[in-house]
Simulated assay, not measured.
Amino acid sequence: MAEEDVPQARPFLLVAANVVTWRRCGVGGQELRPGTKAFKGGAKVYVADVYWGPGGERLTVAGRERHTGRWIIIDTATRHLHGFRPKLVHTPRVLELLRASGREGGLGAEYAADVAATLERYARQYRAGIAPNRPHPDRCLCHACLTGESGELTVAEAGG
Rank of each mutant, 00 (worst) to 15 (best):
V89L: 04
E3I: 04
G55L: 12
G63E: 03
A17L: 03
A48G: 04
V20Q: 00
G42A: 05
D138Q: 10
L107W: 14
A16C: 11
P11W: 08
T91H: 08
G42K: 08
V50A: 08
Y126L: 15
N133F: 12
A43L: 04
P132Q: 08
W22R: 02
I130M: 04
L119W: 01
G41T: 10
V45Y: 02
E152F: 03
R134M: 08
L59E: 00
I73N: 00
V19G: 02
V47I: 14
G105S: 13
I130W: 14
I73L: 09
G53Y: 08
P92F: 10
A117P: 05
V89E: 00
L119K: 02
R33C: 04
L59S: 05
W52N: 09
T78Y: 06
L14A: 15
W71A: 00
L81G: 03
A2E: 15
C140P: 05
T118F: 08
A116W: 11
G151L: 02
L141F: 09
L153C: 07
H90T: 13
L97E: 05
V50F: 03
D49M: 11
P92K: 08
Y126P: 03
H136C: 14
A77T: 04
E157M: 15
A43M: 04
V50W: 00
V47Y: 06
P137G: 12
W52M: 07
A113L: 14
E4H: 10
R134F: 15
V155G: 02
R121S: 09
E65W: 11
G106D: 07
V94Y: 02
A116S: 11
R103D: 10
G159W: 06
W22H: 13
A100C: 07
L14T: 00
G105P: 10
R139V: 09
R66C: 09
L119Y: 05
V47C: 05
T147C: 11
P11D: 09
G83M: 11
V115G: 01
V20Y: 01
I73C: 02
P137T: 09
G42S: 01
P132H: 02
H67G: 06
T60G: 11
K87I: 04
V19P: 02
V15G: 01
A16L: 01
G26D: 07
G108V: 08
R66I: 12
G159N: 06
H67A: 15
E149K: 02
T60P: 00
F84I: 03
I74G: 06
A109G: 10
I74H: 07
K40W: 03
T118Q: 14
T118N: 04
D138S: 14
E3R: 13
H143S: 06
Y111G: 09
H80W: 03
R103Y: 12
V155E: 05
Q8H: 12
G108I: 07
C25G: 07
E96L: 13
E57L: 05
A109Q: 14
W52F: 12
A48I: 01
Y126Q: 01
R134T: 14
A43C: 06
A2S: 11
V6M: 10
R33A: 07
A123L: 06
R64A: 15
L13S: 05
W52S: 10
D5G: 05
A2V: 09
G53E: 13
Y111E: 15
E3Y: 13
M1N: 09
V45K: 01
Y111T: 12
D114P: 01
A112N: 05
R58D: 04
W71G: 00
R139N: 14
L59R: 00
L32C: 07
D75L: 05
G83C: 14
N18H: 15
V50S: 04
